[in-house]
């Protein structure tokens, strides 16, 4: 350990418009570092869905990306309402998002399943009233 690159982002929960800025930034950095396009794409999509979730469900939070030569770890942590039933939330199509969010193109209940689909590992820890921490790992090759 100790040889990883670390990127930290504060995700603004009051601004749907800027949601995704951190993911765009990570995508750029991974490109500069020369990671394979498929790895970059999976990291970007997983992080982007997580970032959107923090903004629409949890009033923002923090994102950390740890870049190792053989894997990329994404940690998303918020102090939002928490997730009551994680297994249910992970199901495709399950969403508590209001119609106002659906009108913006999200809230189809595909975010968490997408994050799982594009990563090798995904852990969700959540406590009602305390917050949610999601850790995802994308392996390089």
């Amino acid at each position: 350990m100790g040889d990883e690159l670390r990127f930290h982002f504060n995700i603004d929960g009051d601004n749907f418009t800027s949601a995704g800025e951190a993911s765009v930034e990570v995508k750029k950095k991974l490109r500069q570092l020369g990671f394979p396009p498929d790895v970059i794409r999976r990291v970007s999509i997983a992080m982007y869905e997580g970032e959107i979730n923090m903004v629409i469900h949890a009033r923002g939070g923090d994102a950390d990306v740890l870049v190792y030569p053989d894997r990329i770890v994404i940690i998303l942590e918020d102090h939002g309402p928490g997730i009551e039933d994680i297994d249910l939330a992970m199901q495709e199509g399950y969403s508590t998002a209001p119609d106002s969010v659906r009108a913006l193109g999200f809230g189809a209940g595909m975010g968490l399943p997408n994050m799982k689909r594009y990563t090798e590992e995904m852990h969700v820890e959540s406590t009602l009233g305390v917050g949610t921490k999601i850790t995802m790992v994308v392996n390089v090759q």
Partner: peptide, 30 residues
């Protein structure tokens, strides 16, 4: 629906949409 785009797109390089907000562009970037 941007999440559908993120879920199902493989190598499609053009998106047609009636939705207008910055997340449409970020989704396309991703």
């Amino acid at each position: 629906m941007m999440s559908d785009v993120l879920a199902f797109v493989k190598d499609q390089t053009a998106l047609l949409t009636g939705l207008v907000n910055p997340q449409v562009v970020r989704t396309a970037m991703m």
